[in-house]
Amino acid sequence: MRRFKEKLSGRIFFVLALSSISALALITVFIVAKGAPIFVKVGVRDFVFGMSWAPGHGEFGIFPMIVGTLSVTLGAAVLGVPLGICCSIFLTEFAPSVLKSVFRPAIQLLAGIPSVVYGFWGLIFVVPFIRDRIGGPGLSILAGSVILAIMILPTVIMISEVSILALPRQYKQNALALGLTHWQTIRSVMLPAAKSGIVAAVILGVGRAVGETMAVIMVLGNAVALPKSILDPVRTLTTNIGIEMGYASGEHQQALFATGIVLFILIMILNSAAQFITRRK
């Protein structure tokens, strides 16, 4: 009886452990099955590189949205990544312990605030600021980049911090003993040694930016057109789904799932890259 119970419990844990595999498989299968017909009908090339999105007329080209996603993400990375890495250096190297005990929970709170709240704050604060002080309609790539930069900070900071903290103590001690200043030690010994973790942090942060929907839906303006400057409104892959899913049906709905497939592939590439980099060590 005891033997049986032992065996049974092992089996049960194994079955539970299969849940994440089955979830990933189900998600992949169902989204692909629902979106694939539009690839067949329109053609992958015309779907991905098509310039016109007019579901009413059967035109499904998402190239402007791919450009939108890439430009907003790039903007968020340019603003957020240096700031995030600086913050992780601050936390591990410079912050007095009192500040550390305030800063860390603050970053966690930043990670927990609902994305719609960021979007709303962007809409009432960032968008008017850009419109009045910088120009353009305000609803723009720039506004989206600012909001996303704030939103990816926790990811970049927390993962970089962990990889800096994981360094052997001797690295720093030896460098300091050789007469390097604190910053020289950080720049030429610690950051290079923690590189793979920091790169993974950046990739995961970028993944968050690519996948974010509700925050950017409010500040991007959502126009389907190729942007000419960072002050132009754009639509991203995620916001395309978020805006139109509520009323879409038939082919239109399939096209939104196909947009989801493109997004899914983009994210899986980023995730696998991050996993590959952190595993390699």
Partner: peptide
């Protein structure tokens, strides 16, 4: 494979979960 799946699930955007939930739980 389990770890890969779990880490991939962690990265999937919430809107994709929404799409899946809609087609699988709500409709299918």
């Amino acid at each position: 494979i389990i770890r890969f799946s779990a880490e991939s699930l962690a990265g999937i955007p919430s809107i994709v979960y929404g799409l899946f939930g809609l087609i699988f739980f709500v409709v299918y």
